[in-house]
């Protein structure tokens, strides 16, 4: 739904822009294509790698590894899995809820969700292309550490 809305808004803007200035609109579309083409190889490579990684994971496996009793090692595993995988939110949240019901711990799920959102191991090549290796390493490293804090606080508040 959200996605079709994005297309709708984009088309509306193109029409307005075209109506106001044809030439500028053409330049804008050309720029858009060039920027897209620039990053396309990374996108395609990432998509295939994500498919491979996710093929190995399923809710039963996940809840076995990161159950309530798994403690901090479980949190670490959850954060690593979250950091590596790239799952869209509308798949990740129901999946997290499912894993929670099948016995995963809150702290582990907190780390998983947080790392999933902030850390991107598979998108690292894209991030490096834009921000360089140093900054991408720092950002992902700090975000990874931060997800342990999030896990701890969620356990204290919600658990």
């Amino acid at each position: 739904m959200e996605n079709y809305l994005l297309y709708g808004v984009t088309i509306l803007f193109i029409i307005i822009s075209f109506y106001k200035d044809r030439k500028k609109t053409k330049i804008a579309l050309k720029k858009a294509w060039k920027a897209f083409e620039n990053i396309l190889p990374e996108f395609l490579g990432i998509i295939i790698m994500v498919g491979i990684v996710l093929a190995f994971l399923n809710p039963e496996v996940v809840s076995k590894i990161i159950g309530k009793q798994s403690g901090w090692p479980g949190v670490l595993i959850a954060a690593v899995v979250g950091a590596i995988t790239l799952i869209p939110g509308f798949v990740a949240f129901p999946m997290a809820a499912m894993v929670l019901q099948s016995g995963a711990g809150l702290m582990q799920i907190g780390a998983f969700v947080s790392a999933l959102m902030m850390v991107g191991v598979v998108t690292f090549p894209v991030e490096t292309k834009y921000f360089g290796k140093k900054l991408a390493l720092w950002r992902n490293g700090l975000a990874f550490l931060f997800s342990f804090l999030v896990a701890f606080i969620i356990e204290k508040v919600v658990g």
Partner: peptide
């Protein structure tokens, strides 16, 4: 299957983002 699903995801989000950026 998962790759195709992500590809669809990307096709829905990325092109409009780049066009909006161009504009």
């Amino acid at each position: 299957g998962i790759s195709l699903f992500s590809f669809k995801e990307m096709a829905l989000v990325i092109p409009p983002i780049f066009i909006l950026l161009g504009l």
